[in-house]
Every structure is written in structure tokens, then in C-alpha cells.
Amino acid sequence: MDDKAVIALLTSDKNKGMEQVLKQYAGFVFAIVRSRLDNVCDSSEIEDCVSDVFIKFSDVWESYEPEKSSLKTYLGVIAKNLASNCLRDKKATLSLDDDGFIEIPDNYDLTDEAAEKELIKTVIGQIKLLGPPDSDIIFRKYYLGQSTKRIAKDLKLTASNVDVRAHRAMEKLRNILGGMI
């Protein structure tokens, strides 16, 4: 069922709508949550986090705007954020990769919300322009926090291939963004 039909269903019968959302996206949300919490939480905690994602969605779905993003993306963002919260609760932190740093000019005011939003938009725009599979690798590595092994498995690449591509893509991003930000 497409997004609009799911929303129509939620509007007319929330319970049935949520059943449909669960049916369509439980496996997807599980994939995101698990890839982030795999080595930190046990399976029941992962399941709890997945449930929390849908509970959160059932509270906020009315603010979902189909013209701005797909339902999959909307749920993906909730899943990633709640999984990050679970990590924080566990006091586990993702190590920040040395390769992942980008130089931001000192005059760039990141406390200004509009400036930060603009930066995010620019960076994501450039990541998308890397094209597959590099854009997928960077997104998975730096947004979802997936391991190299995991990315390699999902994208049918070797682990070293993923690392090399990620390194090259970051170099490329740094060069491009250096001239843009």
C-alpha cells in the first residue's frame, strides 16, 4: 500500500492504519535499530526500541508531510534517533572516525539554527551527488553508524572495498565542501 493510502487508513481508523504500518515497515525499522544496537543491546531491548519507534510514530504521524518525504524515510529517521537515545542510555558511544572530519570555516555560526540547517542540506546534497554505492556507504557509515562489515554485506562489496570507497568519498566531499561552505 502506498504512503497516501496508509495515511488515509490511519485517518479513518488509526488502529488498522497502525497495523498496516507495522506490516509494511516492522522489518525495515528492525534493520535500522539492530544495525545500531547490535553489539550493545540484547534482542529484547532491540525489540523494545523497535516498538518505541512505532509508538512514537503513532503519536506524531499527523505531523508527517507526505510531500516532503516518504513514510519509509520518516520512520527511518525516528528509528535512527530512538536507537541513538538507547545507545546514550546505555552510555555507549559510537567512536568518531578520524576520516569523518570536515573543515568548517571559523566564521560559520553553528549555533544559528538556519545556518546549521543550510549546512546539513548542503552536505546531504553533496553526499547524494556521490552516487551509488559511495553515497550509500557514507550515509550508512556516518548517519546510521553501521559497521564496515555490515555495509559490505548489505551492498555486496568487500570490507576493504567499503573502507577504500569511504575514504575516497570523504576526500571528495572535503574538497567539494571546502569550496562551498
Binding site: F28, S69, Y74, G76, L94, G100, I120, Y143
Partner: peptide
Amino acid sequence: KNLAEILQNADASDLNGMFDTI
């Protein structure tokens, strides 16, 4: 700034389509 930190505040409209391969 680490890319992971920059991306953590991205919202669904910025990321539309990025989850498609998951």
C-alpha cells in the same frame, strides 16, 4: 566537525530517498 555530528540533526525531508537501499 565530524560528518556524523553534522548529520545527526538532519530531518526526513533532507534525507528523503536515502533509506531506499535499506
